[in-house]
Design a protein around this nucleic acid. Sequence first.
DNA 1: TCGATTTTTAACGTTCACGTCAAAGTAAAC
DNA 2: GTTTACTTTGACGTGAACGTTAAAAATCGA
Lengths: 139, 139
Amino acid sequence: MNWYKIDDVAKITGLTKRTLRYYEEIGLIPPPERSDGKIRLYTDEDIEQIRRVLIAKEVLGFSLQELQQFLHLKKMIEQNHTEYGSFGPEELLEIKKHLSGQIHMLHAKIERMQKFTQELTELQQKIKVQLNQFAKEDE
Amino acid sequence: MNWYKIDDVAKITGLTKRTLRYYEEIGLIPPPERSDGKIRLYTDEDIEQIRRVLIAKEVLGFSLQELQQFLHLKKMIEQNHTEYGSFGPEELLEIKKHLSGQIHMLHAKIERMQKFTQELTELQQKIKVQLNQFAKEDE
DNA sequence: TCGATTTTTAACGTTCACGTCAAAGTAAAC
DNA sequence: GTTTACTTTGACGTGAACGTTAAAAATCGA
């Protein structure tokens, strides 16, 4: 098993040491093991978890709080699935509703991003036209 | 021409009055007309502009500063196109590079969002299975 | 026209997401 | 085993994006 100290993890993930401690403090990532002298020792799996959190953060544009709630929900559902559940049917329905809301939101966001990308592409096109003008002037 | 006072615009856009003044203060939206008594009077076009800014903010996940720079850039390019340009060819190339970077980033983001949406859909599926179990138990 | 409601600017307050610094403990290197 | 480098907790600092409050001015309704 590989063990990483906080500075290694910082370099690997691109986060600062402060940020790693902060994310742990607010419960966004699980507390890693510690040495006898209380020094944080991260595993490869810990690092993977951090990576997933970073992607979710960036992709969803969530605040850290929202992200936290989301990860909690996800964990709950997965536990419920394997271990035979702590959720009743009305809770499950509630969660399902919540999820479809999220999915819907993501679809809307994706659509707007595609529109935006198109706008940018059009801008790029205009620049190309301009550049051609300059090329002509040089002849 | 329709004129809206700040409270109307707040209700229409969902922003607070403070936020509207703040966005104006940092140059994110153009200052609207004023009455003789110095009261802000927004037009439909102003409101449209605000809407576009909001979408760009949400979609791109930009900070207000980045957003500001981006809008500035866009305006510049469009002016350059119609009014015959304040940009030289090397500046245009720089901007073009910048734009392709942005477009690339958006593509990557869209892809990750689609993956994420799929993950959520799978979670939803698991919940449906759970709900079916409950339905069976009730028979 | 007068009272009630809104709007204005200015200033200070707040929350989030960390940065920075200090003091003490731990690990590593020689 | 001592110096050097790294880590820990704790606390205060900071910039962004507003919220809140106050006091004066403007507008609206009766």
